[in-house]
Design a protein around this nucleic acid. Structure first.
Length: 294
DNA sequence: ATCCAGGAAGGCG
DNA sequence: CGCCTTCATGGA
């Protein structure tokens, strides 16, 4: 077994992160077993199975395969991004301590990192899938899509799936997707986004170079199927922007309603008022509030 | 049965 | 601009 270690930052709880990674049994892109996060990454066109674990102050990444230094760098970067390890949460916890909504939730989940999806294409397709339906159903759809159009890899006696590439989703048969219970509209959105990634009209690199949150949001919502919610979701879960707030999010509404003991969902201005003290940390605030629901 | 889910587009006035 | 309907299904 070959291994690499990454030093952990302060305010990190492996258990809290694992719980989040293991929140749905239908998740097709990784497994969590006995405190180990298992994931297949394709590096240099070859699939490799990684076992990711942690002790008090270190993350350890292990694989049976002998990797080039360049590949190891990619894996380490992928893990750092996925677990948002470069983020210093001191300010967030200071702010949350005195916040009536965040306070109790943050104390309960302290050390949880915002689990990111490093790939923008995967993030956007996951958003399209999840629009307007409950999470359980969304995971069913994702599982079917990944098993049908994603990569299959037999490693260590198990089948591992990787997310479909744009070319696998750019020419879909609507009838096939209908059997998989996708709405016709979602098939159109997915296919059009895949085509734009394939042609290069839309790319992760282009958005990362923009650097200005407003410009990024503006670019994203030009794409059919991407509205305010999806743009903000992608900014927080993929691009790592700290201040994305999906104001219309049903989960956010539910969490605020619960925390403030309202008998109805909050109005947009109530959401903004609640979020005012979170300035600069809206992404983490939203992510922690989602935890309060499960 | 009815309503809402980690929404968005398109039509209307 | 704001409001209304449609899309598909499942769980409460």
């Amino acid at each position: 077994m070959h291994t690499r270690k990454i030093q952990l930052p302060a305010d990190f709880s492996w258990q809290a992160c694992l719980k989040q990674l293991d929140r749905n049994a239908l998740e097709p892109l990784h497994r969590v077993s006995e405190g180990i996060w298992q994931k297949v990454l394709v590096l240099d066109e070859h699939p490799h199975l990684f076992y990711i674990g942690a002790d008090e102050d270190t993350i350890e990444i292990a694989t049976e395969d002998d990797l080039k230094d360049q590949s190891w760098r990619e894996v380490e970067q992928w893990v750092k991004t996925s677990l948002d390890l470069d983020r210093n949460l001191t300010e967030f916890y200071q702010m949350a301590e005195s916040d009536p909504i965040l306070g109790p939730i943050v104390r309960q989940h302290r050390g949880l990192r915002l689990i990111r999806i490093p790939d923008l294409f995967e993030t956007l397709i996951w958003c399209i899938i999840g629009q307007q339906i409950n999470l359980a159903f969304a995971y069913q759809l994702k599982s079917r899509l990944v098993r049908t159009f994603g990569g299959h890899h037999l490693l260590a006696g198990q089948t591992w799936y990787t997310f479909p590439k744009p070319e696998a989703l750019s020419d879909l048969d609507p009838a096939e997707l209908k059997i998989m219970q996708f709405s016709r509209r979602k098939v159109e959105y997915i296919q059009e986004i895949a085509q734009q990634f394939l042609s290069g009209d839309l790319s992760q690199q282009e958005l990362e170079q923009l650097n200005d949150p407003l410009a990024i949001r503006e670019r994203l919502v030009k794409v059919r199927g991407i509205g305010d919610w999806t743009a903000n979701y992608a900014m927080m879960r993929c691009l790592g922007l700290p201040n994305a707030l999906p104001v219309g999010d049903a989960g956010l509404h539910q969490a605020i309603r619960k925390a403030l003991d309202l008998d109805r969902k909050p109005t947009p201005s109530e959401v903004r008022a609640a979020a005012d003290p979170w300035k600069g940390w809206e992404s983490y605030a939203t992510y922690y509030l989602w935890q309060s629901l499960s």
